[in-house]
């Protein structure tokens, strides 16, 4: 498992190559990349600054990956999350998961993102024409994460 917080951009191909290595047990690699939109809540966004809580962030992400491992048969997982100033179209986050079959990789990847959005201590401050503003949490993110509370692990998938 790899969890990294960094200001630098990341190379998706290189990261996913490193994640799967030459492991012949891997039959599926699922990945999610989050990027900066230029519009949010009705305002144009010129850029944003992402901050986190060093120490807790790494711990929270590791716990999320551990939870994913307990629910699905995954071989490895990777989270790279950027902090600092970001511009529209910049990459923010990469989640990669490997497994023998795609069902587990897809589900674990979505689970990790849903939990990251609601449990990992990151905050976005957007620059808009009306000034800088802290992004409000979305109810839809809470609902997405809550789906997994009710869901039974799909071990047989």
């Amino acid at each position: 498992m790899t969890v990294r917080i960094q200001t630098a951009d990341f190379d998706v191909a290189r990261e996913l190559d490193a994640l799967r290595g030459r492991d012949p047990k891997v039959g599926a690699v699922a990945a999610f990349i989050g990027t900066v939109r230029d519009v949010n809540d009705g305002s144009t966004v010129a850029g944003m600054t992402l901050e986190h809580y060093p120490g807790m962030t790494e711990k929270a992400l590791a716990m999320i990956v551990d939870e994913a491992r307990s629910r699905w048969d995954i071989l490895d997982a990777l989270i790279v999350h950027r902090v600092g100033p970001l511009a529209p179209a910049d990459q923010i986050v990469l989640v990669g998961v490997t497994s023998a079959h795609r069902g587990h990789a897809f589900a674990a990847c979505e689970f990790i993102m849903d939990y990251l959005k609601t449990r990992a201590p990151f905050w976005k401050k957007e620059m808009t024409p009306e000034g800088a503003r802290w992004v409000e949490a979305r109810t839809s993110d809470d609902e997405a994460a809550a789906r997994w509370e009710a869901a039974t692990p799909e071990r047989g998938a």
Partner: peptide, 25 residues
């Protein structure tokens, strides 16, 4: 660095953080 519940004890020497709702990803 662990999320606390209302009744989680606070002791001298602890680091206690107040967090607004998170918005990463």
């Amino acid at each position: 660095h662990d999320m606390a519940q209302a009744d989680t004890p606070v002791r001298p020497g602890d680091e206690v953080a107040l967090l607004p709702p998170v918005t990463g990803g």
